[in-house]
Amino acid sequence: MTNMNRRNFVATLGLAGTALLAGCNGSEQPADDAQTTDETPEEASYTLVKEGVLTNVAELGFAPFEYIDEDGVTVGFDVDLSNAIAEKLGLTCEWLPNQAFDTLVPTIAQGGKADISIAGMTIDDTRLEEVDFSDPYLNSNQGIVALAGSGETSETLDAEGVQVACQTGTTGNSWIEENLPNATCVPLADVTAGMMGVSTGLYKAMVIDLPVAQNMIAESFSDLEVVEEIPTGEQYGIAVSYDNPGLKDAINDALAQIEEDGTMDEIKQKWFGTTEV
């Protein structure tokens, strides 16, 4: 990996419910303590790509989080959440056209095209090198999808010549690299291509976010099943540029309000049929 500034001391904290505590590059601000967001001034100063509009960018094939429905409308859990956030901020919400998942972080890091990426994106240390994240808004896990009844496990999959698909740049991608070192990791642009490949036997399995796996299997891939749930306990956050700390604070504020006033539960209920997510 690239040269990371080593710090000689730093006793670090792992705080559940917050982002990783210490940034990796000296230039980056450490994440705020989750509990301090209330102190952010009401008139947050932030910049937007387009005035009055909260511009989102995401990979729009990630049901139930963000996808394009039969009518061509972008819908999903993240969409409702982002609308709620925009409403709290007195903004309207717009989505850029579909973009490959692995381009989202660079897009936000570069700035100028989108303000935020709310895309079922797990807060993790590599991404934190490039972009900042809001407070986590949802917990998630990974799942291994394979043909129903195939009996595949993470042990059988970890073998030479076995192709395991994932979506490029996702946590599933790095999970395969770290945990299935003998298998061949096949990163793909979209989830459907991977599921289709597993269904036709092109790939042995796919590792993706569990809610997405369950949704895909229920909606269109009845011949597949989640053969193994991987309890990663990862957390989705909203990617924001480090150059726009005001926006991150404003979003955290809005998130807190949404949690408090029950909007979050409504959205969860709508998309997952339960608030226990």
Partner: peptide
């Protein structure tokens, strides 16, 4: 030295 640690605890799939 110089490391950062992330703690995750799960009960089943539920994060604590």
């Amino acid at each position: 030295d110089g490391s950062t640690t992330r703690i995750t605890a799960l009960e089943g799939l539920k994060r604590m």
